[in-house]
Each structure stands twice: as C-alpha cells, then as structure tokens.
C-alpha cells in the first residue's frame, strides 16, 4: 500500500481534506486527486457527503431569486418527453366483452406472462409466509379489464400495463392509488402513462405497506391540482390486490 493511500486512511487527515473539499478549499490537482480516491474509497465519499449535508443548511440564509417562467417550461417539457404521455378526450372504454382485449397481441402476451407467473407461484392468502409479489387486474365500470398491475419485491417496483389507451384531456393525467384494506386515506403512488407500461419504483417501507392494501385504483387528476395527497378525480379503473406466495 502506498504511503499516499495510508495517509488518506488516517481519520484526522481525510476528515480535514473532506471538509476542505466540501467548502471548496481544495483546488487543481489536489482536488482531482481527492476525487479519484473518493471513487474507490467509500469512507472518503461518505465523509464528504456527511459534510455536504451539514454545510448545505447555509442555503437557508440566502435571499430568494425568482427563476424565469421559461425554466419551469423547459423542465415540464423534459419530463413530458420522458414519460411520453399522450392524451385526447375521454377514456376509450367501449362496452365490448373483456375477452376482446385479447385480440391485441401485446395485451395477450402480457396476460399470458401473468398466467405463467401465477402458475409458478400459488395464490394462497392463508400461507404463513410473506408475499413475494402482488397483482391486480384493474377493470372499468363495465367490468372490462383495462390494466394489469404487478408489485414485485425482486424488482422493488410497481408495473402498470395499460391494455387500452386511456384518452383523457390535455390538462388531465392518470394517477395510481393504493386503498388500505381496512379503510382510511388512499395513498398516491404516482402518475402513470395513458398507454403501455409505466414503472413506479418503491422503497422497502412502501413494499411492506402493500400487505395492508386491499384495492388499487386509477383516477383522472387535473395536472394543476393543488394537493397531490387527496384522491380528487374520478376513478376510472379499480381492482382487488392479490398476494402471490412462493411455493
């Protein structure tokens, strides 16, 4: 081990260098050398991050400077491009038998893969073990299946697959909600695309909370709604959540 590396393992030295780096006291080659070491030495990076968060409180003291309106427009355009949201008028939910959706090859493939998953696992609500996934088929008022959702522990995400495009006005968007099994306020999980698959990442706490979820719902929300925490819009689709257990 080089003396240089040993030097950076001395807490007295690397803590001082970390705080100098954060404040901006390291320049030129010294700064680059420290950044290179940070990439391979976790403790350096962790110390820097801890000091960064300490000093970032200084931002509270700054006077406000209002950004131009263009800045938000640019951000909004960026996000909309990312999510590829398309919308038009109302949900295209004709009163056709639900099995008609199987005519669509993509929907058929998705449902087939879901059946494969379910046959690989056993839907057993009386199992003593913990669920490894949850699934729900969301249907419209006419009972036509419109979306398949799956919550997976292995991927730590919710996938929502819209089997038919939901046509909604330009100023509206679709939102996914979890309704507690024993009543209470629904939890907003995120905005979803009107067509195709949307992936919403979840954390460990959210995963654990799914054991208490009874119903998933997709509602139409105004893009300008004041509070994102309350279910304000009309529910378009809903379905009971089923637990999947490992055999």
């Amino acid at each position: 081990m080089s003396n240089n590396i040993k030097r950076y393992q001395n807490p007295e030295i690397f803590e001082q260098l970390a705080i100098e780096y954060v404040v901006g006291g390291l320049h030129g080659r010294a700064r680059k050398r420290f950044e290179t070491l940070m990439e391979t030495h976790f403790y350096l990076k962790a110390t820097v991050e801890a000091y960064e968060l300490k000093f970032a409180h200084l931002v509270e003291l700054l006077p406000d400077e209002k950004p131009s309106k263009q800045l938000w427009s640019n951000l909004e355009a960026h996000i909309n491009t990312e999510t590829e949201q398309t919308s038009e008028t109302v949900l295209n939910d004709t009163k056709t038998p639900w099995w008609n959706v199987l005519v669509d090859k993509k929907s058929y493939a998705f449902i087939a893969s879901l059946f494969v998953l379910v046959t690989a696992l056993i839907i057993n609500p009386f199992s003593g073990g913990a669920a490894i996934a949850y699934t729900a088929i969301l249907t419209s008022k006419t009972e036509a299946p419109m979306a398949v959702t799956r919550v997976s522990q292995s991927n730590m995400h919710i996938s929502i697959n819209m089997m038919k495009q939901a046509n909604i006005p330009d100023d509206m968007q679709l939102a996914l909600w979890c309704h507690p099994r024993h009543g209470g306020k629904p939890k907003l999980m995120g905005v979803i695309s009107t067509t195709g698959e949307t992936i919403i990442k979840i954390d460990k706490e959210e995963w654990n909370s799914f054991k208490d979820v009874g119903l998933l719902a997709i509602s139409v929300e105004s893009k300008n709604a004041q509070s994102p925490n309350e279910n304000q819009g009309e529910i378009l689709l809903k379905g009971q959540l089923s637990s999947l257990y490992e055999t």
Partner: peptide, 19 residues
C-alpha cells in the same frame, strides 16, 4: 413515484433559494 404535481410544488418552493 413520478408525481409531476409534487415536483411542481417542490420546484415552486425551493427554486428561489437554489437559484
């Protein structure tokens, strides 16, 4: 969770200090 409304609220509240 891809909530754009929340992002707008966060932007409105924090962008003046960050700018």
């Amino acid at each position: 969770a891809n909530n754009q409304l929340a992002f707008k609220q966060l932007y409105d509240a924090t962008s003046p200090k960050l700018l």
